[in-house]
């Protein structure tokens, strides 16, 4: 399916990049192999301006109101939210585990930081994911180059600032290569 290119409308404030929203959901009993992952992930729309973002976002369910095993992904247009994508294959992600009840607020803040280009790491950011699970929720931010420590440190420090994380929050960095090896996202 060919999609119409996304562009800002008259009078709108353009974003540095266009972003695409994806949604996925699976039953925990089903194995998370690559094929079922790709089949489960649904493209839900793209935005090119601040105004398009709000229009789109305000119609979405807040992640804290989702149930079961589901994920929202927002990635730069052209990057699939998969380890195998060219932009992700040498990359990794910061993982922040959140107790139940915090996901919606942290999700909105991490999106605003990404759309507003607050991370200052050039082209490195690929996208963000919120993962709703049974015991806890998980926020991740993916970048292109896992072994670039200047970049990953700057992303971590920016996250601490923009999310105003509680002092006891544990942040872990995981390369997608390691996720592939142990067949586990977190």
């Amino acid at each position: 399916i060919r999609r119409k290119p996304t562009s800002p409308g008259a009078g709108e404030h353009p974003l540095q990049y266009n972003y695409t929203f994806w949604y996925s959901r699976r039953t925990p009993s089903r194995p998370a192999n690559t094929q079922s992952y790709e089949q489960n992930i649904k493209h839900i729309g793209s935005v090119a301006s601040v105004e398009q973002f709000w229009k789109f976002y305000s119609h979405l369910v807040r992640p804290g109101d989702l149930t079961g095993h589901s994920d929202f992904h927002i990635f730069k247009e052209g990057i699939k939210p998969m380890w195998e994508d060219e932009a992700n294959k040498n990359g990794g992600k910061w993982i922040i585990r959140l107790r139940k009840g915090l996901a919606s607020r942290f999700w909105e803040n991490i999106i605003l930081a990404m759309l507003g280009e607050q991370f200052m790491v050039g082209e490195e950011i690929c996208g963000v994911v919120v993962s709703i699970r049974f015991q806890e929720d998980i926020l991740s931010i993916w970048n292109k180059t896992a072994n670039d420590q200047v970049t990953t440190s700057r992303i971590r420090d920016t996250l601490r600032r923009v999310l105003n994380l509680p002092p006891n929050t544990i942040m872990e960095y995981k390369t997608h290569n390691d996720s592939l090896k142990d067949n586990s996202s977190f």
Binding site: Q16, V50, E51, W54, E117, Q118
Partner: peptide, 21 residues
Amino acid sequence: GTRIIYDRKFLLDRRNSPLAQ
């Protein structure tokens, strides 16, 4: 090139713009 940077307040202020409805 120039980067388009928006702070959180700027983005939140656009939320209720007629263009965002």
